[in-house]
Amino acid sequence: MTEFVYLYRGYQLPASPEEMQKKTAKWMTWLKDLSDKGHVKSFGEPLQPGGMVVKGKKKQVIDGPYAEAKDVVGGFSLIVAKDIEQAVEFSLGCPIFEDGGSVEVRPIRQLA
């Protein structure tokens, strides 16, 4: 078994409280299903939009990351899967795709 990070990118504000509730419920259902099957190591954390970016040799501090809405990382989870193919397959049920967002599936480097 290998561990993967799901990076959730892209964000769309639901238009009404009812839609927000439906969206929230879909995410919870999707992750709970994966978790029940033992594939969630950590549900992870949601990230607030905005923040600071520190970069370069001069350690320049700038407001950001002001990427386009579709590229902003909104949160992450830690997933356990057999291989990258399975990790990708598990991601297919993520509700983020309905909003035009993406899931970046990244294997965590193993020690040794």
Binding site: P17, M20, W27, M28, L31, F43, E45, P46, G74, G75
Partner: peptide, 14 residues
Amino acid sequence: AFCRAMETWKLRGL
């Protein structure tokens, strides 16, 4: 407040 709730609960649960 609703956005915060949605973003938090969708990963951490209710």
